[in-house]
Write a protein that binds this DNA or RNA. Structure first.
Lengths: 215, 215
DNA sequence: GGCAAGTTTGCATTGAGTGCAAGTTCGGCC
DNA sequence: GGCCGAACTTGCACTCAATGCAAACTTGCC
């Protein structure tokens, strides 16, 4: 009855579940690489993962969810780390610290790869949009706590949305430049830094007149 | 033959198609109100719209697409109007002008209503996220033209994403306050104005220390 | 060993989405 | 008008996603 969820629960059952989960998403990624996302059926995936079709649905609600799991885990990890940041740290820095945190080259590669598959599958695209959206909602919760009642809902939402937009932009740009073969977590980190810097300054760049007045 | 039917394309076929399309999305909205989005089948919807199931799929790929049509049309209209704005107008103002343009009280009500249904149906939520996303891509295209080569892809993406985030925040906040019964396009307009003002200033509000340095 | 709770699996059912071909309506043309 | 080709609708058939259910199986605990 060790209720120690997640880490450090060597329960056989828990380990088996994790193994199954990993087997399924690994098989999903493999098939998505070979035949494109949406280019195979649940039966094929369940078969490749060594489980029954029914069991697949016990773990994931759809193929897309299985393929997008790396993204989900990345976002979950990033935005749950946000709670651990000092409460008086500027939001922008906290987001940088959590999103741009340590990441292996391989992990970044998978992230970009899955992100790029969006082009070939509307289903997968929607799934990812939903994941980013729920990340934004977590961020809103965090922001509400940090900024307190002084910040209105509108501000919290607009700010959270803008920050997530910056992160997405950084991810997309990193994925683009990694098209050849260059996962590079550092590139993502730099893009993130740059886009958040832009946001910070209200996108007012000296040489560009997209917002000449009011500054 | 031409019975002086107003303008544009008075073709009988075209009119019929529009009528069918409208009948379907009207029926979809009606059923979504009564039984919740996702609370009815395509058969029921086709029946309510007075067409065959197969015909429904000739017009919409899914129930959610039919329900979300008002949002799609709003976004399409808003972002196609963007092309018509003077090229030297500041982006922010152009977005305000197109998004906050003339809108009837009823239209605003429907928009908020559909937006609010998001809570009850993940499918519908994803559909709307996709619509906002494609709106963002149109905005990126527009921005690329306006800002020229001087603006990098990262800036364009982050800026477009932030602007759309502001619009979404304004819409959501308007929908929230309209929960009782108060569609009010003006409220949306004001929220939009406010959130974009925040964006413009880099979310640096005097009394709030969420970003104390670097300004 | 053996019971209880958790997991997997097969089976059956509903319903989404698509291709196809036959029927129906529309537009243009003599 | 009457006819032809194009566009549109519809029924049919088929694949496959997704979920409930109950029987088998595994694991944890005494």
């Amino acid at each position: 009855m060790q209720e120690t969820t997640s880490a450090a629960s060597p329960s056989r059952r828990e380990l088996n579940k994790q193994a199954t989960r990993n087997a399924i998403s690994a098989a999903a990624l493999k098939l998505a690489r070979e035949q494109g996302p949406g280019g195979f059926t649940v039966d094929a995936l369940a078969d490749a993962a060594g489980v029954s079709r029914r069991t697949f649905f016990n773990y994931f609600p759809s193929i897309e969810a299985a393929v997008a799991r790396p993204i989900e885990e990345f976002l979950d990890a990033a935005f749950s780390r946000l709670d651990e940041r000092p409460a008086d740290e500027p939001i922008v820095d906290a987001v940088m610290a959590t999103l741009g945190g340590d990441m292996s080259r391989e992990q970044m590669a998978v992230l970009c790869e899955v992100y790029a598959m969006t082009e070939d599958s509307p289903q997968l695209e929607r799934m990812q949009l939903q994941l980013w959206n729920s990340a934004q909602q977590k961020l809103e919760d965090g922001l509400t706590v940090r900024l307190g009642a002084a910040a209105g809902e509108l501000l919290v939402r607009a700010l959270a949305g803008s920050l997530v937009a910056c992160a997405k932009a950084a991810m997309r740009t990193a994925a683009d430049s990694a098209a050849g073969r260059n996962p590079d977590p550092q590139s993502f980190h730099n893009h993130l830094l740059e886009s958040i810097g832009l946001l910070r300054s209200g996108f007012n760049i000296n040489g560009i007149n997209h917002d000449p007045k009011d500054s």
